[in-house]
Nucleic acid binder design. Structure first.
Length: 833
RNA sequence: GCCGGGGUGGCGUAAUGGUAGCCGCAGCGGUCUUAAAAACCGCAGUCCCAACGGACGUGUGGGUUCGACUCCCACCCCCGGCACCA
């Protein structure tokens, strides 16, 4: 699922030798006393032996499904971004566990897909063996991180035991009416002779692998009818507890526009239908534009213009296929030589075809209102077409897109535009039989066919007699055959077409010879349902158990990156809705809560091989330990904000964890329990409060800062450390540094495991200060301060402030016009002059 | 172009409208050491001043307020998403 073509990072030790990069990577030698390797190994094996993170899914009373986006196991291993995300998600899960929830925290591998396949092609190894190696390496890395993963329930999308059910999902959607076949264009690289995913095409329409100009090719493909749920996908968003940024991205992607379909009469032809969100500007429609590939473009061309228009249409098609987008300032188009008529006035409106109108949106034709639309305006200027202002407020020569009052609009003059004029004119058009209110969306059906090798074969059979028939469920999985030469064929067919044993089969319907569909499905189909699989991962009789699903889903909390805000999360929502409608699920939204984490960047840039700033986490972990590394990542900045910066800062968290163990030596363990001083109690409860408030809000950085403050306070403390101080620290630290927290807890004599303890509660009555510093300002500038008992009343504060010698000097000869007192905070004296 | 999110010391960041810079990194000085590292203690926004102290300071310019990093208006820059979507 990870987007990531993350490439191999150079060793951080190599980089130390490179002077200009050294500032990111000055890793200090280790301190002596803290043996993180021993501590972390000890607890990881203890956790495993005792099954601490295995959840009895069918029995536990307070289920909490803590999900994080599963990684794509690249050849380079987990990168820092993965570690950051998993550390944050795990801290969340551990915190919830200590609130008393039974937290199920699974992880798996999203291992199919074009990235793996391309990488395998590049290095000349087979993806089957490559992925096995990568998964093993990922698993090792994940275990070292010390997250509370339940490894008894894991998934690997390339495992036939998993993709059997991905194929089942496809069949279920198909039978339920959510899958269909259609011809559509796919991106095609003429040099690599292969189909590309959209994201493999760069902004300049070149292939990301070879740089060739990408073209299009029309192929028959499978689509999933996500548009069946467009309105629901949009409407449900407002009720979901998701990061607002994520919801906004989905709203934009769905792209709802409300308007009307309008019919413009044409002499001696059927009317031309357009979609407009601004019917109120219809009196300003001075021309109309059809997309070059609109089905009626040639039909509506005057005979004497036909040759020129046909040539233009052909040229536009060539440019479109070649992926050559017009540059912004030029607006190519040509007149058709015929007119439509304004349905309200009968006025003639010339027809054009132009590339700026797209066939795929609305009706593929528009009424152009150059006075109030920038693109129409640009076209009008270029072809010297009339510009008629119909909404007041236009200044200068551009398009006025804003609001105003209707002018030049006959009986509608004076109405506010767009509203209420939009309603009124639409009603008039509807009344006259020229319009219908209408909503359009940008969302398109989901094409899932991939003419590639590394994915689950689509379980369909093409029979010359029966047509396209589904593979019977009992014949699943349709195994992906091991093909030595898995290079793309160059015909637009999948490499599977090379394998006659795979290709040739019999029709399950008539028993006659038939051929398998040789395409594989989109990797997003694999990940669209994996959260349903986890609780039932060990079941081979069903994709997901009904009871377990009822108990554990929808997912309580989902943590992931906003790079998947649209595709993965939208597809998952669609699949859930479809399965609900088909009676397989009792809910229609899969993720109750979703939080988007930020992105780790370095030197202001995304990590990438070309920038040479990819950091390999293993060396950090082996040198400083997973605990310090987790702490470091979460301490960098606010977890949910994009643009976290990574620097040399691991020293701080590493010192912090080392200091904890030294503090531990100062505890009077075993002997007399020390009473806690008022001062230490205050510091401790302040720390509890801060960490308790900040952790569930994902403000990990400030929670960690609060613990550092408390530790600093303890280090300054002379004499033995009260045991309760370290106990509290062990508990608060458990979500962040799970190994060290266990170690401290054990050495204090606590029962295994610290992760099964209850979270401490802050006592507010112990937190308040007895003495406070009250700042004395003159005209808002600090001039002196008072130290007084907390709660000293305003008049007393004012009296004391005015009595301060330094303040007296400032008052010299001036009149105090006003005094503003903020109790326990500030006294502000406002002087005249 | 449109839509988000951001601009605070050398760096990452922190601040219910009430002492801007907490916490940490890097840096500098010291203690310890034969030495170095580690550890520990201290200094540290900029400018002026010997010092006391003062002026300036949260992207820029305005505004509201006794008081603005915080609220309002306009603009600039960075990051991310979408992009002839009618």
């Amino acid at each position: 699922m990870s987007p990531a073509h993350v490439e191999s990072g150079r060793s951080i030790w190599d980089r130390r030798r490179s002077p200009e990069k050294a500032r990111y990577h000055q890793l200090p030698p280790m301190a002596s006393s803290y043996d993180h390797r021993a501590i972390e190994a000890k607890w990881q094996s203890r956790w495993q032996e005792t099954g601490l993170y295995r959840v009895a899914l069918d029995r536990v009373p307070r289920p909490y499904y803590n999900l994080m986006m599963f990684p794509y196991p690249s050849a380079e291993g987990l990168h820092v971004g993965n570690m950051f995300a998993f550390s944050g998600a795990d801290a969340h899960g551990r915190f919830q566990r200590m609130q008393g929830f039974d937290v199920f925290e699974p992880i798996g591998f999203d291992a199919f897909g074009i990235h793996s396949e391309n990488f395998a092609l590049k290095i000349g190894r087979h993806p089957t063996e490559l992925i096995a190696t990568n998964v093993a390496r990922f698993r090792g890395q994940l275990e070292k991180l010390g997250a509370q993963f339940d490894w008894s329930k894991t998934v690997d999308t390339t495992d036939p035991a998993y993709y059997r059910w991905t194929q089942w999902l496809f069949l279920t959607l198909w039978k339920g009416g959510f899958a269909y076949r259609a011809r559509r264009n796919v991106k095609w690289c003429p040099q690599d002779l292969t189909v590309l995913a959209d994201e493999q095409v760069l902004a300049d329409s070149t292939c990301e692998r070879c740089g060739a100009l990408v073209t299009e090719r029309e192929l028959e493909q499978w689509f999933l009818r996500i548009t069946a749920f467009t309105e629901r996908l949009l409407a449900n968003l407002s009720g979901l507890d998701w990061s607002e940024s994520t919801k906004l991205l989905q709203r934009h992607w769905i792209g709802r526009s409300q308007g009307a379909l309008l019919d413009f009469p044409i002499d001696d032809a059927d009317p031309l239908r357009v979609f407009s969100t601004r019917p109120d500007t219809i009196f300003g429609a001075t021309f109309m534009v059809l997309a070059p590939d609109h089905p009626r473009t040639l039909e509506l061309t005057a005979p004497e213009r036909l040759a020129e228009v046909a040539a233009f249409v052909a040229e536009a098609a060539r440019r479109r296929i070649a992926g050559q987008r017009e540059d912004e300032n030029s607006t190519r188009g040509v007149a058709l030589g015929r007119d439509a008529r304004n349905p309200l006035t009968g006025a003639r409106i010339p027809l054009y075809t132009a590339e700026y109108v797209l066939s795929g949106y609305g009706t593929g034709a528009i009424m152009a209102v150059p006075a109030h639309d920038q693109r129409d305006h640009a076209f009008a200027v270029q072809y010297h077409l009339a510009v008629v202002e119909v909404v007041s407020g236009r200044d200068g020569s551009g398009a006025h897109v804003g609001s105003g009052v209707l002018v030049n609009s006959a009986q509608f003059d004076g109405l506010g535009a767009p509203d209420p004029a939009r309603e009124v004119i639409t009603a008039a058009l509807v009344e006259a039989g020229f319009g219908t209110p209408h909503v359009t969306y940008k969302l398109r059906d989901w094409g899932i066919s991939r003419q590639r090798y590394w994915g689950p074969p689509i379980p369909a059979i093409h029979c010359p007699n029966c047509g396209v028939v589904p593979v019977p469920e009992e014949d699943l999985p349709v195994l992906l055959p091991y093909i030595e030469d898995f290079r793309p064929l160059g015909t637009g067919e999948s490499p599977l077409a090379r394998d006659p044993d795979f290709l040739n089969t019999t029709c399950p319907n008539c028993g006659g010879p038939a051929k398998r569909d040789t395409d594989v499905s989109d990797t997003f189909l694999d990940s669209s349902w994996y959260y349903l699989r986890y609780p039932s991962a060990d079941r081979d009789d069903v994709p997901f158990d009904r009871e377990l699903t009822r108990k554990w889903l929808p997912v309580t909390y989902y943590d992931g990156g906003n790079e998947h805000a649209v595709l993965h999360l939208l597809y998952s929502r669609f699949v859930t809705m479809a399965l609900q409608q088909l009676g397989f699920l009792d809910f229609e939204e899969p993720f109750t809560q979703f939080r988007a984490h930020g992105m780790i960047v370095m030197g202001g840039a995304k990590m990438s091989k070309s920038r040479g700033n990819v950091v390999v986490p293993d060396e950090y972990i082996s040198r400083f330990g997973a605990d310090a590394f987790r702490l470091y990542l979460l301490y960098l900045g606010p977890y949910q904000e994009s643009g976290n910066f990574i620097d040399t800062g691991i020293n701080g968290p590493y010192r912090f964890v080392s200091q904890l163990l030294r503090l531990l030596d100062r505890v009077n363990a075993g002997g007399v329990e020390l009473p806690e001083s008022r001062e230490l109690a205050r510091a401790r409860h302040r720390c509890i409060r801060r960490v308790t408030l900040d952790t569930p809000e994902l403000k990990y950085n400030t929670a960690i800062a609060a613990m550092m403050i408390f530790v600093k306070r303890l280090r300054e403390h002379e004499g033995p450390i009260p045991k309760v101080a370290m106990e509290t620290l062990a508990l608060l630290l458990a979500p962040y540094c799970p190994h060290l927290a266990e170690e401290i807890w054990e050495r204090l004599g606590g029962d295994y495991s610290v992760h099964q303890q209850k979270w401490p509660v802050a006592d507010e009555s112990l937190i308040a200060d007895e003495q406070v510093v009250v700042v004395v300002c003159i005209n808002g500038k600090k001039r002196d301060q008072l130290v007084v008992a907390a709660g000293t009343d305003a008049s007393e504060l004012e009296r004391q402030a005015l009595a301060l010698p330094r303040i007296q000097q400032w008052l010299d000869g001036k009149l105090v016009r006003r005094v503003v007192v903020v109790p326990d905070r500030q006294v502000n004296l406002v002087l005249t002059g």
